[in-house]
């Protein structure tokens, strides 16, 4: 694993999908008028006969994708996460999830990573996709995970919602990083507190763990990109070995990763103080840049540190996150 600031790459998803589609003729690529933003200009330019721009018509796009999947094709559907889930929810339910068709819905610009206001922020997409029977829900952290996850989801029998950061994608993991659809990964072991994170909050969790360790706390870090089906076994095992649990997600704390962990702990009868870092049941307003929103709404590295400190019952002042200045083209968590 690298340390922040992380190098970034462009269009790792677009390249991974194109590489796969060159080998798999059943793959078709649908765009909702956000082709370059969803990195699929690569697909459009190389395989135009399997690329369909449905335009700004997400309800229609989901219906088309479901019907194509019935004919043996594997549609990858692309738009921003808000428009991929919030707007065509009923269509996803009826045309895709209920018949359990192999449609891959790829939603870009997760959570508060968009300074575009609440209309453009997918803050409950994980919750509503996770509520659907048959749906697999994945929120990956970096370019290596993206490269690994695309070939792994192509042959799943049912639908998938894949949540991806837009733009410059950090490279956190080494090339030999292993990615499993059925397993959360214990990246670091520890005995005091476990931080369970995914997506854009994973790098924050790693940085928070470092600061906590500097203050003498033994921290476990778990990467849980697959929110559904959720690897309850790993989470339960890690939680058993610590005194407190913190979750971190770029999403509302209602219905996403934090909720999945809460359900796991409760069903296992594990009484551990739990703190959920994420949007506290609020929409996010007032930003020129995304980092401001991460800070303003409590999704920063320091918020994870403070949550762990609080969960452990510490009343003295918590350690502070090490500053990680990033040059242009680099990425560091907020």
């Amino acid at each position: 694993m690298r340390k922040p600031p992380y190098p970034t790459v462009l269009k790792p998803y677009g390249q991974a999908l194109l590489d796969l589609a060159k080998e798999r003729e059943e793959i078709v690529c649908l765009s909702g008028d956000l082709t370059r933003q969803c990195e699929i200009d690569l697909f459009r330019d190389a395989l135009p006969e399997r690329f369909i721009n449905v335009g700004m018509a997400e309800a229609n796009m989901m219906g088309i994708a479901g019907a194509m999947a019935r004919q043996g094709l594997i549609p990858f559907v692309h738009t921003f996460g808000v428009f991929a889930t919030r707007r065509p929810f009923d269509q996803i339910v009826n045309a895709i999830a209920y018949p359990s068709l192999p449609v891959r819905i790829v939603g870009f610009m997760p959570g508060v990573s968009s300074p575009g206001g609440p209309s453009h922020q997918a803050i409950e997409d994980v919750a509503i996709m996770r509520a659907l029977p048959n749906m697999t829900v994945i929120d990956v952290a970096d370019a290596v995970e993206i490269r690994k996850v695309v070939p792994q989801i192509v042959d799943l029998p049912g639908p998938v919602y894949l949540r991806l950061k837009r733009g410059e994608i950090p490279v956190i993991f080494d090339d030999d990083h292993e990615f499993f659809l059925d397993r959360a990964q214990v990246l670091e072991s520890g005995e005091d507190v476990a931080v369970i994170a995914n997506g854009m909050m994973l790098s924050s969790a790693l940085l928070a763990a470092e600061a906590l360790r500097g203050a003498g706390i033994s921290v476990a870090v778990v990467n849980a990109p697959v929110v559904k089906p959720f690897d309850t076994r790993t989470v339960e095992a890690v939680a058993r070995g610590v005194r407190a649990v913190v979750t971190a997600e770029n999403h509302t704390i209602v219905g996403g990763l934090g909720t999945a962990v809460a359900e796991t702990l409760a069903e296992a009868g594990l009484g551990r103080p739990l703190r959920r870092v994420g949007l506290k049941d609020t929409f996010a307003e007032g930003a020129k840049t995304a980092p401001h929103l991460f800070k303003k709404y409590g999704l920063s590295t320091q918020d994870i540190i403070d949550a762990a400190w609080n969960a452990l019952g510490r009343t003295d002042s918590a350690p502070t996150a090490a500053p990680t200045p990033a040059e242009t083209g680099e990425y560091a968590p907020v």
Partner: peptide, 15 residues
Amino acid sequence: QGLSGGVGLSLADRI
């Protein structure tokens, strides 16, 4: 929702 389904079936035939 049916017409979108019909469109998808037709497009699949074309592809």
